[in-house]
Design a protein around this nucleic acid. Structure first.
Length: 570
DNA sequence: GCCGTTTTCGGCCCGACTGTTTTCAGTCG
């Protein structure tokens, strides 16, 4: 049973309780538990099997009652309390509170007064004007709800990291032109490098907030203004993404950056810490009474609590506050540490550029080496190379390598893991390659057990070096296949194999949570782009961000090594 | 419902903006 299944139940219990106007702290407790479960690198069912209910209760945020519900789910496959709550509301009802502008109070009001229990019914009622007469509702609220529905339908909520980054950078470029803008910083999940982004958050220091807000609301990319005040404004962009702008004075920049970067759970944890010391934390600073004690910089902000500076990628309340207290925050890997890209395709299979073009582009990025890794014969849709073709391709790679100075090229292949766990070329052929990537491109829908064995067998193959995009997911398009990642990582450790963090914004797997687990096990990671064209080599930054979110340092990442050392490792 | 180097009971982060209100509830981040 996947952790996500448990988390889902607790997210929904929280929503139900909120609708029922239950104790808000109880609601929060369920949400916290759900969030904690999602960020566990261990399988919750395994934790229970080995340590029982006691081990569950040892997880912060999980106490007696939630532990019991987890046990119940494992033993019986269901949670009675959840089923009872679900019975009280129609199936699609929870969708309503996910519409921007509709919260629990409004949802219940709509249900009680107008029997509205689906988004479609809500849309119809709003258009007919039936909502306007409800207590606390009016024409403007109805308009807001309709806009919320449109936005929801259009965007499905979240955007890929590269898409959001590009939009944020455009807005920042525009706002930077104003002389009233003294400092500008993208914050929120974008700054934390989360794999998907809900909205763009931008922080500005200015002593003329009105001017800045006016310009923001009138940017060419803006479709609609949701809210506009002197310190805070929100707009919807033409691509359906929401952007929030916050303006503060310079003396609050650090605190505001911290507040606006989040995560929410990280912020709450800090504020609890502050409370215990008789201090108050807000976006304006750290205060004792009315006196500001810190807030100009983030470093100063953390220092006030005796904490080491915490890089944004770690601010998820996943142990970083504890680490900062003990001054054991890792020195995270940086883009400049990367010495080569070990996963890319050329026109030989499904890429758009030649070996020489890819190499030249990589050299421009300052890399010491690359590996050319086209698809193997079974991946027919990607023009995978037959054995004879691969032999010829290896010769070509070596010929190009000879001509080029300043960058070394490894002859590799991204070889399919067949359904039985064999890999897609003969041992003789594999022996001629400098690096063998292994990956799954077909037969995704295998039972968890079989899929795990399939991958473990491929890792055990003496010719394989690097397992690429280990979950097979495409964010927003394809779910990861069922696999026991713990067992895969254990196998990688046993056979001394490498695991990839695929830097493509749709993949970004190995995921952050399992990066951390790999590090604990001593399994080395490779960050690579899987580029199918020269410009995709630039996606490396997103892989590095994911690795940073997984607490990885340069020494945990194999392609920060110089070539000689890397080859020794291979 | 969770949690405790003040506590096993009584707390639980903090503030901005909007719309519908005559002082604030709801929503959001």
């Amino acid at each position: 049973m996947e952790n996500q299944e448990f988390a889902q139940i607790f997210w929904q219990i929280a929503d139900f309780l909120e609708l029922k106007n239950d104790n808000p702290f109880k609601v929060r407790a369920y949400r916290r538990a759900a969030q904690v479960i999602e960020s566990l690198s261990h399988n919750l069912a395994d934790v229970y099997q080995t340590g029982g209910i006691k081990a569950l209760e040892d997880i912060p945020g999980i106490g007696e009652h939630i532990a019991q519900k987890i046990e119940e789910k494992i033993k019986t496959g269901r949670v009675k309390a959840f089923n009872q709550l679900a019975k009280e509301f129609p199936r699609e009802f929870l969708d309503l509170i996910n519409i921007p502008g509709v919260g629990p109070k409004t949802a219940i009001l709509l249900y009680k007064k107008l029997k509205i229990d689906t988004i479609n019914k809500l849309e119809k009622a709003a258009k007919s004007g039936a909502l306007n007469d409800l207590p606390g509702m009016g024409v403007k609220k109805t308009e807001n709800i309709l806009r919320g529905i449109t936005l929801k339908k259009k965007s499905h909520g979240r955007f890929l990291l590269d898409d959001a980054t590009a939009h944020a950078e455009l807005i920042i470029e525009e706002l930077k032109k104003l002389k009233e803008v003294k400092k500008i910083l993208p914050c929120g999940s974008l700054r934390r490098g989360q794999e998907t982004i809900g909205d763009i958050d931008i922080l500005i220091v200015s002593d003329q907030p009105e001017t800045v807000m006016d310009h923001f609301a009138k940017l060419a990319a803006v479709q609609h203004v949701l809210a506009k005040g002197t310190t805070k404004s929100s707009v919807v962009l033409k691509n359906g993404m929401q952007a929030d702008l916050r303006v503060v004075e310079d003396k609050s920049f650090g605190s505001a950056a911290h507040y606006f970067t989040g995560s929410k759970d990280h912020n709450i944890a800090i504020r609890v810490m502050a409370q215990k010391r008789g201090l108050k934390v807000s976006e304006y600073g750290v205060f004792r009474g009315k006196t500001q004690l810190a807030g100009k910089t983030e470093e100063e902000f953390y220092k006030k609590f005796g904490l080491q500076y915490i890089p944004p990628e770690l601010r998820e309340n996943r142990g970083e506050l504890e680490a900062a207290k003990h001054h054991t925050i890792p020195e995270l890997v940086e883009l400049s540490d990367i010495k080569g890209d070990l996963h890319m395709h050329t026109t030989a299979s499904d890429g758009f550029n030649s070996i020489a073009e890819m190499a030249a582009a990589a050299k421009k990025l300052g890399y010491e080496y690359i590996a050319i890794t086209d698809h193997s014969q079974s991946t027919r849709v990607a023009h995978g190379l037959k054995s004879q073709e691969l032999l010829k391709h290896i010769k070509e790679i070596k010929a190009v390598a000879k001509k080029l100075t300043g960058i070394k090229i490894l002859a590799g292949s991204e070889v399919d893991i067949l359904p039985n766990g064999d890999i897609d070329y003969s041992d003789e052929l594999l022996a001629q390659l400098d690096i063998v990537l292994i990956s799954i491109h077909a037969n995704f829908k295998m039972p968890r057990r079989e899929m795990t064995q399939r991958i473990v067998k491929a890792l055990a193959n003496p010719h394989s070096n690097l397992l690429t995009h280990p979950t097979g997911r495409l964010i927003g398009e394809r779910e990861p296949y069922e696999v026991d990642m713990e067992e895969v990582l254990q196998a990688a450790k046993k056979y001394h194999k490498l695991i990839e963090v695929n830097a493509h914004p749709k993949r970004l797997d190995l995921t952050d949570v399992y990066c951390k687990r790999a590090k604990e096990l001593g399994v080395k990671i490779v960050i690579s782009t899987d580029a199918h064209a020269t410009d995709q080599l630039n996606l490396m930054r997103y892989g590095v961000t994911t690795a940073r979110r997984g607490w990885l340092e340069a020494r945990d990442v194999a392609n920060t090594l110089p070539l000689a050392k890397l080859q020794k490792l291979l």
